[in-house]
């Protein structure tokens, strides 16, 4: 990788913006999760305006409860939008790699799409759109993380590995984990939204989602464990690998906790462990914190496995310039 990187001194700004955007997007995701937890999505029945006021001028700090959460989500979304715009501008000005520029445009387009999706969820009062909005949110977060990774100095000055065998396996494993983590997120979204659907099939969707969520959790634990072990053994992305493992461990605990504070103990567990001694409180801090952290950690797991995949791919010199084009050049019509 000694193409023309040394000729132009790379600007640090795209990377900084990307970090900023990723840091704004992460809370956006978990506040979004909080909106679902509180079922606050319809706190306002209008969009782009909040209760008739253009949303940027709405008196957010005087709002309470659901309106505070929902409007907070809107404001954070706007922030992510402006940051994406900034990122696109900065990238176009300072970045020489064409595909990174295109990627920044894709980020911008995605944020707009995501916002419109969220808006339509409100305007049409459509829970299914909320579900999709919840599934695409992490995808946008992934794009932001991708921007961070590919604009980093490490990436630009990347060193290829001499021995590629183990790294290729790590790469495949990381891609697999990313895929599984995302599927898990989709199933999780179905699990969270189906209880509040009123159609008769909602029970079936929920049941299915629960079973899939459990199966996928088991698969993810197994593969992430394997991935972390490979990373550690082959000295590839050790920190991220370990972080991923820790996140998954935490995620399992958060998941169990979320179920417990929301739905209590299933009958088999009661028989094994006895009954819980405490009472759940609807909409209390514990419930909100556990459930929302579960959602947030899910996105982090997704991001961490993507980071491993991307960085190992970089180390493997997997046709880096082409990589994003392969992924996004085909179906992309926006940019």
């Amino acid at each position: 990788m000694t193409r023309n990187n040394e000729k132009i001194r790379p600007s640090p700004w795209p990377h900084r913006w990307a970090w900023l955007l990723a840091c704004a997007t992460f809370p956006l995701i978990w506040v979004g999760g909080l909106v679902t937890t509180n079922d606050a999505g319809m706190a306002f029945r209008d969009w782009l305006t909040s209760d008739g006021t253009f949303f940027l001028f709405y008196d957010w700090l005087s709002a309470a409860g659901d309106k505070f959460v929902e409007h907070g989500h809107r404001l954070l979304g706007a922030l992510a939008g402006f940051l994406s715009l900034g990122l696109a501008i900065v990238t176009w000005r300072c970045e020489s790699r064409g595909w990174v520029r295109q990627l920044s445009l894709l980020v911008l387009a995605s944020v707009v799409l995501q916002a419109v999706l969220g808006g339509m969820r409100v305007v049409l009062d459509e829970r299914v759109l909320a579900l999709i909005h919840g599934c695409t949110g992490p995808l946008f977060f992934l794009l932001c993380v991708m921007m961070v990774v590919v604009t980093s100095r490490w990436w630009k000055s990347g060193v290829t590995l001499a021995e590629k065998g183990p790294a290729a396996k790590v790469f495949r494993l990381a891609v697999l984990c990313t895929g599984l983590a995302y599927l898990q997120l989709v199933v999780g979204a179905a699990l969270r939204h189906s209880p509040r659907m009123t159609h008769e099939s909602a029970g079936g969707v929920f049941q299915l989602a629960v079973y899939f969520h459990l199966v996928l959790a088991a698969l993810i634990v197994a593969y992430v464990f394997l991935l972390a072990w490979k990373c550690f053994r082959h000295r590839l992305q050790r920190v991220t690998g370990l972080a991923l493992l820790a996140l998954v461990a935490m995620q399992i605990c958060l998941g169990l906790g979320s179920w417990l504070v929301k739905y209590g103990m299933p009958s088999w567990a009661t028989r094994l462990l006895g009954e819980r001694t405490f009472v759940n409180h609807a909409d209390d801090g514990l419930q909100a914190a556990l459930v929302t952290s579960h959602v947030a950690t899910g996105s982090l797991i997704l991001a961490a496995s993507l980071v491993i995949a991307l960085r190992v791919a970089r180390q493997l010199d997997y046709g880096l310039a082409k990589l994003p084009q392969v992924r996004f050049g085909q179906g992309e019509t926006v940019s």
Partner: peptide
């Protein structure tokens, strides 16, 4: 084992999906 796991994983995923 790794290869088998990966393959089975892919298969399982295929089937699961």
């Amino acid at each position: 084992t790794h290869i088998i796991l990966t393959c089975s994983g892919l298969l399982v995923r295929c089937r699961l999906s």
